[in-house]
Design a protein around this nucleic acid. Structure first.
Length: 492
RNA sequence: GGCCUGUUCGUCUAGCGGCCCAGGACGCCGCCCUCUCAAGGCGGAGAUCACGGGUUCGAAUCCCGUACAGGCCGCCA
């Protein structure tokens, strides 16, 4: 691979960072890291209507959370990092960069002013559709005389600048993922470079900036494939060397259409809130459309950066699978140590409204108790809630199936006495005493364990029993078992 | 309507002419472990490689059609 790899992620700030955008960012990031290149963040806010400052903030936040740190570009504090800035297109526009280059093409006869109104264009498209022709701009303003122009100007019309597309020939390039791709020029159209507002369009700004920022590889979604021949003709008109192109496949929802809001969570922020770890998101996203030869699933820190390659990228679209995402998050959660897990769990615990001062054991011990069960952080409070309050919320089904057994009330009254006489209230002591109780009374272990579990936690499923009882503490456990005894006795 | 792209288990994928009547992972099913649920271990079902033609001694892999799917055709990006 040649030196000076420079790639960029260029989102338009019109909402939260979408999971598809995050993947594009990730692939660019990984590519840059793999080849010791430069990863650049450029804000493409040329849509004056939809771009917002707030969206820019969201993009920064999501990128930072994912750990996709950029070497150059717009920074959260408003500064510009790097020698090829500014990295915000609206600022570049204000600096006159796009107008300057557009004028150059106009002067050379490679672009022209067009006075057609949006309504006229609309009309043309409708007509074309009716006649089953491609809705392509017919080039009617290509050869306007000075007289015609001044008449339009007098009418108060603001012109756009259109690129004069070659009528003949073929535009092709060797895509790093799709191999050879080609388009006939006569099918292309005179696209707008500068809008009537003076703002550049995507296709124009993108080329100017990629050139000026010395981008070596353009890695983006393959919804841009048909924009590429337009852009290549721009490079040719300027006489610039074009970058390499790599078009990534799309991400689909479960129904096979492009992943969108109606498929549920689509922004990085939503996944963060649900309790996915950034490492999970990165790992999962990397696997959507990319793989190693041995189909490796889980990557240790730094491994993605080492192993990533464009050759391993898929040409066909990938369906997003939330189930596998959750599995993967479980894998990452299980790797966390006690302290880290508590740090991650804390926001969810706080938000749950549980009385965090209630338990007598350290929170990290409680959280870690069920560590191998978690799939997302947000489910932690519900799993542990019985540790945080005086009384037990009984699961009616558990009560029904366990307390209705004839031995239940006998077990509960007996075991409460046994527990209250244990001095060293630790897991091993509790377990030994419980097993002895079962044996002495001719009961199966399960006949004792199950009612006790429901009595202290209210649920039929939960953490390992004796550790749970130890963490609850002697007083609490005995009290709960006695209360449950009343309940079970009443059932009879 | 035109152009472009794509098509291997339900899903993500390995595969780049013989090692493949197709391997891994998620999910599913069963067994084991076990105080429950998980986790873990073991095993299983699941793809005639979209379809039809070629090329070749030999094709999931190369070529051509067909079908289906997606993308683009905006003074959106």
């Amino acid at each position: 691979m040649e030196k000076n790899i420079r790639v960029r992620f260029a989102p338009s700030p019109t909402g939260h960072l979408h999971i598809g955008g995050a993947r594009t960012a990730l692939f660019n990031y990984l590519f840059a890291r793999k080849y010791s290149g430069t990863f650049i963040l450029r804000i493409e806010d040329t849509d004056e209507l939809r771009s917002t400052q707030e969206s820019v903030k969201w993009i920064f936040e999501s990128m930072a959370w994912l750990g996709l740190n950029w070497d150059e570009g717009a920074m959260p504090d408003g500064s510009q990092k790097g020698d090829f800035g500014p990295y915000v297109q609206s600022v570049r526009e204000a600096n006159g960069i796009y107008r300057e280059y557009a004028k150059k093409l106009v002067d050379e006869g490679k672009a022209y002013y067009c006075y057609c109104t949006a309504e006229e264009l609309d009309e043309m498209r409708k007509k074309a559709a009716l006649e089953k022709r491609p809705p392509k701009y017919d080039g009617r303003c290509r050869h306007l005389t000075d007289e015609q122009r001044s008449r339009f100007e007098k009418e108060g019309r603001k012109p756009v600048i259109r690129f004069r597309m070659p009528d003949e020939g073929i535009t092709s390039w060797k895509d790093l993922i799709h191999k050879e791709l080609s388009f006939e020029n006569k099918l292309l159209y005179d696209f707008i470079m500068i809008k009537a507002s003076g703002y550049p369009t995507y296709n124009f700004a993108c080329v100017i900036d990629d050139y000026l920022m010395k981008i070596s590889h353009v890695i983006r979604g393959d919804d841009h494939i048909s924009n590429t021949p337009l852009q290549i003709n721009l490079y040719k008109a300027f006489g610039w060397q074009m970058p390499e192109f790599a078009h990534l496949s799309m991400i689909l929802g479960p129904d096979g259409s492009r992943l969108s809001k109606r498929h549920g969570a689509t922004s990085v922020q939503e996944y963060r809130k649900e309790g996915f770890l950034p490492e999970t998101i990165k790992n999962y996203l990397a696997l959507l459309g990319w793989s190693t030869q041995d189909s490796q699933q889980i990557f240790e820190k730094g491994e993605l950066e080492d192993k990533f390659s464009l050759e391993g990228c898929q040409k066909n679209p990938a369906t997003f699978d939330p189930v596998k995402l959750k599995w993967m998050n479980g894998e990452y959660l299980r790797k966390l140590d006690k302290k880290t897990m508590l740090e991650f769990a804390m926001p969810y615990l706080r938000e749950s409204g549980l009385d965090l001062s209630y338990p007598r054991v350290p929170l990290e011990d409680l959280v870690y108790l069920e560590y191998e069960k978690y799939k997302v952080l947000s489910e932690i409070p519900a799993l542990l809630s019985f540790f945080f309050k005086e009384n037990v919320d009984f699961d009616s089904q558990a009560v029904e199936s366990v307390f209705s057994k004839p031995s239940a009330s006998k077990v509960l009254s007996g075991i409460a006495d046994v527990y209250s006489s244990i001095d060293n209230f630790k897991e091993s002591e509790i377990e030994a005493a419980t097993r002895k109780f079962a044996k002495d009374n001719g009961l199966k272990n399960g006949e004792v364990f199950h009612p006790v579990r429901v009595a202290v936690s209210g649920k039929a499923q939960g953490p390992t029993l004796f550790k749970m009882i130890e963490y609850l503490g002697k007083d609490c456990a005995v009290k709960r078992i006695r209360a449950a005894f009343e309940l079970a006795a009443a059932k009879k």
